[in-house]
Simulated scan of single mutants.
Amino acid sequence: MPTHTRPPVAVQDALPLAVTASEPEEVAAVEFAAPEAGPTRYTLLPSPIGEILLTGDGAALTGLYMRPEAGWERTAADWRRDDGAFAETKRQLAAYFAGELREFSVPLAPSGTPFQLRVWRTLTTIPYGRTTSYGEIAARLGRPTASRAVGMANGRNPISIIVPCHRVIGANGALTGYGGGLPRKERLLRLERSTARTAAPGSATG
């Protein structure tokens, strides 16, 4: 399965942002499925932040990538384009970009080490419109000195946006490296913050 890495990027304070705690809007961690065996299915999706590559195993989403993330071009001969298999994911992403959805409900099956999976599950508890730091995530995992390891795991998150690694920023409020590029990270955070001020919590319907 493809993974993406975060290229070295200088710390930038583009918004600036404040690191916000996750209470009182605690979000339950998403339970991940184990990826199923078989050829990877994929589709391409236009979006307000550029073309998105979705990958899946036929039952769950295994990847969401944005150019120029590494992993985008790592398609194999046995990959199968299957636009219909991602209809619900596309619907929810469209609602998210329209500011109408805060919590995704598509099944997820990322591939990673046990530590990476723990970090990614913790990312899913960061509420919409909020941000946190690598150090805070490390502390929540019971490993307060593991900020660097958390940052590396965050950078290898294969399901961008839905597993919201864009909500992790520097302890000083600075935007840090993002696989999809800092302009996209800033745009996602601005979307969520502007929507959070005007909309009630909840998922999109119908």
Rank of each mutant, 00 (worst) to 15 (best):
177 G>D: 12
171 A>P: 10
180 G>L: 06
153 A>T: 09
150 V>Y: 02
177 G>T: 09
180 G>S: 14
165 C>S: 15
168 V>Q: 02
177 G>A: 15
192 E>M: 01
169 I>E: 03
154 N>Q: 13
171 A>C: 07
191 L>K: 01
177 G>N: 10
159 I>Q: 11
184 R>I: 08
186 E>K: 13
152 M>R: 14
159 I>N: 08
164 P>T: 11
178 Y>T: 11
164 P>C: 04
171 A>F: 09
164 P>D: 00
159 I>M: 11
188 L>F: 08
184 R>H: 14
185 K>H: 12
158 P>D: 08
187 R>S: 12
165 C>V: 13
163 V>N: 09
169 I>M: 05
180 G>D: 08
182 L>S: 11
170 G>D: 15
178 Y>P: 09
189 L>W: 01
162 I>K: 00
192 E>W: 00
187 R>M: 11
190 R>K: 12
171 A>Y: 07
179 G>Y: 02
171 A>I: 15
175 L>P: 00
189 L>F: 01
170 G>I: 11
160 S>Y: 05
192 E>G: 03
181 G>W: 01
153 A>F: 03
161 I>L: 12
187 R>W: 11
184 R>D: 10
174 A>R: 04
188 L>V: 08
172 N>M: 08
175 L>G: 13
166 H>D: 04
164 P>V: 10
161 I>N: 00
163 V>W: 01
188 L>H: 05
184 R>A: 13
158 P>C: 11
162 I>N: 01
176 T>Q: 13
153 A>D: 01
185 K>F: 01
178 Y>C: 14
186 E>C: 10
180 G>Q: 09
177 G>M: 09
168 V>I: 08
164 P>I: 08
156 R>A: 11
190 R>I: 13
187 R>T: 14
188 L>Q: 04
165 C>F: 04
149 A>E: 10
182 L>K: 09
163 V>P: 02
158 P>T: 14
156 R>P: 00
167 R>T: 05
154 N>T: 15
182 L>Q: 15
169 I>K: 02
160 S>Q: 14
186 E>Y: 02
156 R>Y: 04
178 Y>L: 05
189 L>C: 04
187 R>Q: 12
177 G>Q: 10
150 V>E: 02
183 P>F: 00
191 L>E: 02
187 R>F: 06
183 P>E: 04
156 R>G: 03
174 A>D: 06
175 L>R: 07
174 A>E: 07
154 N>L: 13
173 G>S: 11
185 K>I: 01
189 L>I: 14
154 N>W: 07
171 A>E: 15
160 S>E: 07
156 R>K: 12
185 K>E: 07
174 A>H: 03
